[in-house]
Amino acid sequence: MHEASIAQNVLDIAINTATENSAIKINKVCLKIGQLTAIEENSLKFAFDALKEDTMAANAELLIEHIPIVGKCNNCGKKDTYSEMFFSCSNCGSYKMEILSGEELSIKEIEVD
């Protein structure tokens, strides 16, 4: 359950940022999670909901934007979206793929009062 550790990090960053901006309450926390990261959304939400109790984020909603895997072939140059990690170029079959997106694991923004 590394989702617990990730949820704690999200909460820490959100609360620090809110405090620095003199907010009193966090309403929303927006994340960007790439499909290449091994994060289970339900576990993450569950952990976040458990950890946020008794903090200024007690009523905060966790919103997750899923970022698709986009790869560029270093052989023929084709850019395409892929659904899984085991991928070769959809055009020429080469495995020499450069990953353009899908590795994101970041906190995008928060909404506060």
Partner: peptide
Amino acid sequence: MEKINIEEKILSKNI
């Protein structure tokens, strides 16, 4: 209600 842009890696502390 105010939006605050963060754009920080979640595991930045560990990184």
